[in-house]
């Protein structure tokens, strides 16, 4: 069973290395969205410092969603998804493997590049660790919730826009708690509660999302 998990993660990472452009698109999108905000609201440093956590988090949300439209689409088009549905391993496990691979090539890169963007917003250095940790705990939840939406909208017209309508409202708690953690740290308050909540969300999502996405895939592939 874990052979299948490893095999799917390995395969998706291999595919990602051979389709570098796709991976970079999401990352560049993230950087551009973040960079647009100073142009929109003006370069006033205090304002930028205040909005930085929110802006980076919202951009991470959008980048995660943008790349999610493709998580099952290629496998659906070439028939691999059918083989996955007929696998002897539980489908939830295969979905979990795909989500892990998706996070490794988008979420993780966003986490790594976020501190750099935060510096552009003049976010104090002691907050960078908090921001990175909040993204590290939060972005996997985004990938998992998003997988449910991607599975539900598989093969539908207007898939991308529909996906955002389904998924973005469900992202709200992660956004609130994740960006909230950085705000708390900026105000000099403790962030343990936020991180515990993020970890709790991660556990709940990990327990629930792969199976919901698996059920959705069976429905969509009919």
């Amino acid at each position: 069973m874990f052979t299948v998990l490893r095999c799917v993660i390995y395969r998706d990472l291999l595919l990602a290395t051979r389709r570098w452009a796709d991976v970079l698109t999401a990352l560049v999108f993230f950087v551009i969205v973040v960079s647009l905000f100073p142009l929109g609201v003006g370069p006033e440093p205090n304002l930028l410092r205040t909005i930085a956590p929110g802006v980076i988090w919202v951009a991470a949300l959008l980048a995660s969603m943008l790349s999610l439209t493709r998580i099952f689409a290629a496998d659906y088009a070439d028939g691999t998804l059918e083989q996955m549905l007929l696998s002897t391993a539980p489908l939830g496990m295969i979905v979990a493997a795909k989500v892990i691979a998706h996070w490794l090539v988008t979420g993780l890169l966003v986490v790594l590049i976020a501190p750099l963007l935060a510096l552009q917003f003049d976010l104090p250095q002691q907050l960078l660790a908090t921001l990175t940790l909040s993204l590290l705990l939060g972005t996997p939840v985004l990938s998992m919730i998003g997988a449910i939406g991607a599975a539900l909208t598989l093969g539908l017209r207007g898939g991308g826009a529909l996906l955002s309508l389904l998924v973005l409202p469900l992202y709200v708690p992660v956004l609130i708690i994740g960006a909230g953690a950085v705000d708390m740290a900026a105000a000099g308050l403790g962030t343990e509660a936020h991180f515990l909540l993020l970890a709790a969300l991660l556990v709940v999502a990990a327990a629930f999302a792969p199976w919901a996405a698996a059920a959705a895939l069976r429905i969509s592939a009919e």
């Binding site: 449910i148 539900l152 909208t153 469900l170 959705a216 429905i219």
Partner: peptide, 25 residues
């Protein structure tokens, strides 16, 4: 989201089931 998903799916059986997964989530 629920209504848009159901509207986007032509097959009523799939629409019901997909809507159900979304509503439960």
């Amino acid at each position: 989201g629920f209504m848009a998903l159901q509207a986007a799916i032509d097959d009523p059986r799939r629409a019901d089931k997909a809507g159900a997964v979304l509503a439960l989530t």
